[in-house]
């Protein structure tokens, strides 16, 4: 499990943790029922304050990504497969949209973009 904190980023540190943990969960790197590091260990390892990691975990909990069991620590929530799939779809959607925006900014034509997409798909 990798979490990289950028001190120079304008994004608050707790937000960086939330985003990266979400990605890890959606990608399946962090699986259901897998124990997460405690907020204190995470704070120690990342050399940040405990309040920051606590806030990140609270945020993840609120959005249903993780669950905290008193005395046992935090775990990735057991989630509905379809829901998880939908969430993943949304991530793909986001990335494709990003690509479209980038293409438009570069002045690419619709056909050009589709061709590139097909080419890349076949190369995989």
């Amino acid at each position: 499990m990798n979490i990289i904190i950028a001190n120079s980023s304008p994004e608050p540190i707790y937000q960086q943790i939330v985003t990266q943990m979400k990605n890890l969960i959606l990608k399946g790197d962090l699986t259901e029922a897998e124990g997460l590091p405690s907020i204190r260990i995470l704070a120690k390892e990342l050399q940040i304050s405990v309040i920051t990691t606590k806030r990140a975990y609270e945020e993840l909990e609120r959005e249903g990504y993780i669950e905290t069991v008193g005395g046992k620590g935090s775990f990735v929530s057991a989630q509905n497969k379809e829901l998880l799939y939908e969430k993943r779809l949304r991530v793909v959607e986001e990335k494709v949209t990003e690509a479209i925006v980038a293409a438009r900014n570069a002045g690419m034509e619709r056909e050009e973009l589709l061709a590139m997409f097909k080419l890349l798909l076949e190369e995989q």
Partner: peptide, 8 residues
């Protein structure tokens, strides 16, 4: 460096 871990 020390301020990094300060909560308050």
């Amino acid at each position: 460096d020390l301020d990094k871990i300060a909560d308050y």
